[in-house]
Amino acid sequence: MKITIKPLKGHPGYKFRASFSQGGKYLQKYFKTKQEAKNFADAKAVELENVGIAERGVSPSEFRALLSAREIEKQLRASHVTEEFSFERAVEFYAAHLRSTKSSVTVKHAAEQFLFSQERKKRSKRHLQNLGYRLAAFELVYGKRIISTITKDDVENYLAGIKGTGRTQINHRAVLSNLFNFAVGKSWMAVNTTASVEITPDKNTPPGILTNAELAAFLVAAEPRIVPVYAIAFFAGLREAELARLDWKDIKLKRGIIDLSAKATKSAQRRIVTISPNLKAWLKPYVQASGPLRPSDQIFRNSRKTACLVAGIKDWPHNAARHTFASCHLAAYENAAKTALELGHKGTDVLFDHYREIVARKDAIAYFKIMPPKTPTNIIRMEVAA
């Protein structure tokens, strides 16, 4: 609304006049000083603007929001952030956000439903325990939040607070990604906010492995009920979850292979693993026609602790058996593709990034010649499986 200020000539009491239109009428106001006229013009301009906005059904707060949006748009364009911002799009985006929030659920509820869905799919006990542990940790931080409001920054801050290596954070992120994919499928959130979260693995930190002397001492000190499991773990490189599912009928000693079914492997694909001559020697006294190789978790852990104590092993590296096997197999055979195949990897990247420690070739060759004592004790001989 335009207000015109003009000086007056010959008026006995006033020197300036403000002219404006209001309500269809032409009005004038007189002032003694120019500053008084200007102050009035500024105030009247705001008043007239608000009246004009109100007449169009727009409240003052809505008008201020529009002006603010225009300023934001100007700044974004000037800094070359985007050319697509507009007041209309901002309103639509926020409306969609509100609708998503209202139709969403808490992180706690989503986690419970996701875990239940995995139970219905009859996932392994170990897999469910892993999910439950990692989901419970996330719930402690964000359990009461609506899952659709969890941002990339929230996920990054959470992962940054987890103690451990980059691999530990990657494992947590994988569980969260599965949870969020489940939530997207339920229309509880629009996108999986973990998809763009990047974590740098600790490539410069070598994996922990046992020396030949430590492994030999451990296997000799171990109780008979865990010797076959650890012999396979160290000399065939099976994952812990695969060992938990392994049955004696999968051990084809005469053929020199371990036949892992699709249900037993991480990739859900059948895998044939080579039984080395020294592994065959470790297994032969214990072999059975069928039945699980691995005892219960508690017995397995306690037996390992006892064997480590007897063998003088103070620290048991994380994933020690698989790391040791991969490192020694690569050094002994000098064939990354062959080692990756035995491990069940599709390529060699994971092998070099996470499983390889530098081992001298002579030590690696000696590793696959570690043999059991000539007269093992407490062994019950069974018929050898085909």
Rank of each mutant, 00 (worst) to 15 (best):
F116R: 13
R77N: 13
P295H: 08
T274L: 14
E62H: 14
Y158H: 12
F182C: 07
Y133D: 10
A96I: 07
T200F: 00
F235W: 08
P224A: 10
P292E: 07
R301E: 12
Q28P: 00
L343I: 06
G13H: 12
T211K: 06
F235G: 11
Y367D: 07
A54H: 12
A289H: 04
I5D: 07
L243Y: 04
A110F: 01
G208Q: 05
N50P: 03
S103I: 02
I226P: 01
R99C: 04
I370E: 06
R245E: 13
A41G: 03
Y14K: 10
I258W: 03
H172I: 05
P376Y: 00
Y230T: 04
I3F: 00
L219P: 04
Y142P: 01
N157L: 13
T265N: 08
N319E: 15
V184T: 07
E383Y: 08
Q298R: 10
R70K: 13
I3E: 00
V191P: 00
T82V: 06
S327W: 02
L115H: 11
T211P: 03
I257F: 11
V191L: 11
T324S: 13
A337G: 04
R356K: 05
V51N: 13
S124Q: 11
P207F: 11
T211G: 09
L128A: 07
E223V: 06
Q118C: 15
K252E: 11
K252P: 06
I379K: 02
N39C: 05
L351I: 06
N212F: 00
H109L: 02
I226Q: 02
R173Q: 11
F300P: 00
E36V: 02
H109I: 02
F31A: 04
H345T: 05
Y14R: 08
